[in-house]
């Protein structure tokens, strides 16, 4: 029932869009589209897809169904995107794990070349945080690193699992500074925040959206981040690069489709995405939800993907990442 109201309103919007003079005869989907998301409902990935999907419906002229496939930490979803019918009615949202999975999970049979790209849809950063009322709450990033170096393994560092983004950032901090943390795996960013507040762990590297409430309330203190641009939420927090430290792994999301999709269909989606990414409603939604806005067209996205693969390859080899069996 709700769904019908939804698709009804989408159709109305589409009718309005069609009534406008068409610029060129571009490809558009002819029936509802499945957008596969490699995670469960709720959380950053899913939010991103639902926001973007709702806006893209306007320009695609068809309803976009979000299909959550959390199985295997995304492995199943990535395979499904690769093996889909290349007719433009099943597309996928991927994160940087699409290039890092092959270095950390045994038996992964996809890589950057398994897909055709539509474009980048968002970017994110990892922010090094400590509890404000904890033993390191008064320090800045340099003092914190000195403290960590002075007493190896004394600082418990919460990471959300083996060689996840949080963990790669921890590794990069250790490599760049010579500090050594006690690595404490904790399931999910929310639980890491909880462990920071309860004093179980003293530090973590988390997404801005995961820590915004606690930082604004003065419970957590951001020390530095791994992005290339200043943080939207806290522009005063220095980046590691500005301190001369190589802690800079890029974290992004993009839309993809099967490799052998006809170029005309792929171009159609590229233009749908471009229009959606330039929609003010999307920018506002991203800002509210704490999703880092970043858009690149397909060509630039491929460049981003290539860089990311090279970076994850070299760091995984340097760290001696052992592949987990699948």
């Amino acid at each position: 029932m709700f769904r019908h109201i939804l698709s009804g309103s989408a159709a109305l919007v589409a009718a309005v869009a069609i009534a406008l003079p068409a610029v060129a005869q571009e490809w558009r989907p002819s029936r509802p589209v499945d957008l596969i998301v490699p995670s469960g409902a709720g959380g950053g990935h899913d939010n991103n897809a639902r926001l973007l999907g709702a806006i893209m419906e306007k320009y695609a002229g068809q309803p976009i169904n979000i299909i959550n496939q959390p199985a295997g930490g995304g492995v199943v979803a990535y395979r499904e995107m690769r093996d889909a019918e290349p007719d433009g009615h099943k597309i996928g949202q991927v994160s940087v794990s699409i290039v890092s999975d092959q270095f950390r999970i045994e038996g992964v049979d996809y890589n950057k070349d398994s897909y055709a790209y539509i474009g980048q849809i968002s970017a994110d950063q990892n922010v090094l945080v400590v509890a404000a009322n904890g033993p390191y709450g008064e320090m800045d990033v340099t003092q914190f690193i000195e403290a960590a170096k002075a007493e190896p393994q004394a600082i418990a560092f919460g990471v959300s699992g083996n060689w996840t983004n949080h963990d790669y950032t921890r590794y990069q901090i250790e490599q760049a500074t010579g500090a050594q943390f006690l690595r404490v795996p904790i399931k999910g960013g929310a639980q890491i925040v909880l462990s920071l507040l309860s004093g179980d762990v003293q530090a973590g590297a988390l997404y801005p959206s995961e820590i915004k409430a606690q930082v604004d309330a003065g419970q957590l203190k951001p020390l530095a981040h791994n992005g290339s641009e200043p943080l939207a939420a806290w522009p005063d927090v220095p980046s590691f690069s500005s301190l001369g430290l190589e802690v800079n792994l890029a974290i992004w999301r993009a839309l993809v489709m099967p490799k052998d999709t006809p170029e005309e269909i792929r171009k159609g989606w590229e233009s749908i995405l471009e229009q959606a990414m330039n929609d003010p409603a999307l920018k506002e939604g991203y800002a509210n939800a704490g999703i880092g806005y970043a858009y690149r067209n397909a060509e630039d996205t491929i460049e981003l993907v290539n860089e990311a693969e090279a970076a994850y390859r070299s760091i995984s080899e340097a760290a001696g990442v052992q592949k987990a069996s699948q």
């Binding site: 199985a71 295997g72 930490g73 199943v76 038996g107 083996n162 987990a324 069996s325």
Partner: peptide
């Protein structure tokens, strides 16, 4: 399923759907 500490999959018999 996947062991959070080591990241390895336990008792999944190679079925990725079991790793969660």
């Amino acid at each position: 399923g996947a062991d959070i500490n080591s990241g390895i999959d336990r008792f999944t018999f190679g079925v990725p759907q079991l790793s969660g």
